[in-house]
């Protein structure tokens, strides 16, 4: 006898398996076209602007204020514990470089650029523009996906470096204005206790996040069905999935990097 709950679980399981299979086929196609033909230079630049340059302002604001609030909270905690705001530069830079810089930038990019990519590809899918690409002698993966993958993989790490820097600057500003820490002490705290491995720990993660956001956004866009409503649904699903996966992947990559000593 078929139990409705079992049927529901079965349907969900089949759905997830199909989605994973389709995503794997999409990745195969991306790798195939990445190595098999010339790049669409114009499209790559266009996407780099959309994904990277257009995300600069949001990234700047979020990272700058994150650095500021980190310095404020840590400074007041340190003051309560030791009567002095100690190691503010170390703690702000450590948090920004290893975790908050890459994770927050990835979330900003997933929410802004990832949504744009899914909505754009989704609209093209429901209005037959993807089919039109086939009929006009090019492959959608080559023309649409490869440039977006490249743009995400290049721009997200760059944005993260920018976010790390601004976060540290924001922390410094609060250190000077609110906590009475001099810029030289703040900088010395950073240079004494942090090394390049701390920066690399966060920087390396962004490549995995970029690849994941590109895959989720493109996959959701290509699997869009059902007109404007479908585009909205696919975009929401892509953003939610990317954000959750950033958090989940962050733990596992961090664990791996710690295990290998980075």
């Amino acid at each position: 006898m078929k139990h409705p709950i079992l049927q529901e679980i079965g349907r969900d399981f089949i759905g997830i398996t199909e989605a994973l299979g389709s995503a794997a086929l999409l990745l195969r196609s991306v790798f195939f076209w990445f190595f098999r033909s010339g790049f669409e230079a114009g499209e790559i630049v266009k996407q780099a602007v959309k994904i990277g340059v257009d995300s600069l302002a949001v990234t700047a604001l979020t990272s700058f204020f994150t650095g500021m609030v980190l310095a404020l909270q840590m400074g007041s905690s340190m003051r309560n514990l030791f009567n002095e705001p100690m190691f503010i530069g170390t703690m702000v830079a450590f948090s920004m470089l290893k975790e908050l810089g890459p994770v927050m930038t990835s979330i900003v990019v997933a929410g802004r650029a990832g949504a744009v990519v899914t909505a754009e590809i989704g609209t093209m899918q429901v209005t037959e523009q993807i089919d039109a690409l086939y009929t006009l002698g090019t492959n959608p993966t080559r023309y649409l996906l490869v440039p977006r993958y490249i743009a995400f993989m290049v721009m997200l790490p760059l944005l993260t470096v920018f976010a790390d820097f601004l976060g540290v600057v924001g922390g410094c500003l609060v250190g000077i204005v609110k906590l009475g820490v001099s810029p030289s002490v703040y900088l010395e705290d950073i240079l004494t206790y942090l090394d390049i491995a701390d920066f690399m720990h966060g920087f390396l993660k962004t490549f995995v996040f970029a690849f994941m956001i590109a895959t989720v956004s493109c996959y959701k866009g290509l699997s869009t069905k059902g007109g404007a409503e479908g585009v909205g649904k696919a975009t929401t699903e892509a953003v939610v999935a990317s954000m959750v996966l950033v958090m989940v992947l962050d733990y596992f990559i961090s664990a791996l990097l710690v295990a290998v000593g980075i």
Binding site: E120, T123, Q129, D131, A132, Y134, T135, G137
Partner: peptide, 24 residues
């Protein structure tokens, strides 16, 4: 073969129902 298929598709023009012009 994707390339062979693309070659055959070159013989075709396709007028889509809604035009399918590229918005951008």
């Amino acid at each position: 073969n994707e390339f062979a298929l693309a070659k055959v598709r070159r013989s075709f023009g396709y007028l889509f129902q809604e035009g399918a012009l590229f918005d951008s």
